[in-house]
Simulated assay, not measured.
Amino acid sequence: MPTIAWRKIAGLIIDIMKTSITKSSLHPMYYLGPALWGIASFNILRVVTDLTKKDEFWSGGIKIHLVGLLISVAFCYVITLLWRRRLERTFAATTSTAQNVWVEYLIAIVQIMAIFNPTVFVFEYFGWIYMGDGYIDYMLVNAVYIPLFLLYYMFLRNEHIDKNMADNRIYVEQIKADKLNTELQLLKSQYHPHFLFNALNTVYFQIEESNTLAKKSVEQLSELLRYQIYNVDEKVSMEQELAFLKSYIAFQQQRLTERLTVNMDIDEDWTGVTVFPLLFQPLIENAFKYVRGQYAIDICLKQEEGKIYFRITNSLSEYSTVKPAILFAESPESGAGLSNLKKRLALVYPQRHTLNTQVDNKHFFAELILNM
């Protein structure tokens, strides 16, 4: 066999092995397995073809059989690379482990035949291997390799399922840790809340009776804080949440310019609908914080086909920076804004929510969809 061909085959095997090694820190069998399977498959083929013909095992010359062995190993690495990539895409598209299994195996059969047979034909054409009985030997090769590699595909599929299960366990543990951390932060924020309410009560009575606006603000603030402290762990009715949101909006309007316009389009009937509280408030707070330009905020809250749709838009000045709004939309370090909201949504509505934000020179838009 020409030296160049040997080098190409060896180089192909080494490159594929390097790719497998660099992509995984798993057990050595992850990248040595294809070589072992290729060697085992070739020897099974030799048993079937030689012993059934009553030929001497490994008859025909050691060089020819070594080339065949290298073809088997290289093919196994190539097909392993293709299948692992396909399995990653397949399992990423759905959480089910039983999705179109028959289609998967049919595609695997086509890949085996489409890659292996032309490879064997080319090597035989150049005289590097010998297929003595022509199409009969091709039939034997396919009859041996197709079942063996379908079994190998099953092993790879189960390997991927095990890996997904391990990743899911890690994800669940991470969610538990995040939840415990959130609960700890909540406990810290609730430390002696009665002191805060007593302090507000003291301030309330220190305000002159004639200053009704200040007294009203203190009352509103007290009720808002009470709702935020005591109603965060369990679902509340949408009527309760809407009452809080309207109070919060009214409180925010008091401290802003009279130019501010707040337009609200909210469904009236929320009978029987419950929701985890304080999921809309961060988005409303953001709108009040960054509203500029025309000083307009549009709020829409609807329910449709088992989903809650919340949309809010605030105007921006085309002459002022929109960096604060962009930071709120994209930065993972956005403090108590979107970052905390995303974490809480992952805890209370895992895979049952959608949060979108958009910003341009004149508007900031946020949309939150909850699957009830």
Rank of each mutant, 00 (worst) to 15 (best):
Leu283Pro: 00
Asn263His: 12
Thr271His: 15
Glu285Val: 09
Thr271Ala: 13
Asp298Val: 10
Leu224Ile: 12
Glu234Phe: 04
Ser222Cys: 08
Ile299Leu: 04
Val291Gly: 08
Tyr230Val: 11
Ile284Phe: 02
Phe288Lys: 00
Thr274Ala: 13
Val275Lys: 05
Phe244Gln: 03
Glu219Pro: 00
Leu224His: 07
Arg255Leu: 00
Phe244Lys: 05
Tyr290Pro: 07
Pro277Phe: 11
Glu258Ile: 08
Ala296Arg: 13
Ile284Asp: 03
Pro282Gln: 05
Lys302Val: 13
Thr271Gln: 14
Phe251Met: 00
Glu239Gln: 13
Gln254Lys: 03
Leu225His: 06
Val236Gly: 03
Lys235Trp: 05
Lys246Asp: 12
Asp233Thr: 13
Thr261Leu: 12
Glu268Lys: 13
Leu242Ile: 12
Pro282Asn: 03
Glu268Ile: 08
Ile249Leu: 02
Val236Thr: 06
Arg259Asn: 15
Asn286Arg: 02
Asn286Phe: 04
Lys302Tyr: 08
Asp265Lys: 12
Glu223Gly: 10
Ile284Trp: 00
Phe280Ile: 08
Leu256Pro: 04
Ala243Pro: 00
Val275Gly: 00
Tyr227Cys: 06
Leu301Tyr: 03
Val291Arg: 05
Arg226Leu: 10
Gln303Pro: 00
Asn263Glu: 14
Gln228Asp: 08
Phe280Ala: 11
Thr271Ser: 15
Phe244Glu: 01
Leu283Ser: 07
Gln281Val: 12
Leu260Cys: 08
Trp270Asn: 09
Gln220Cys: 01
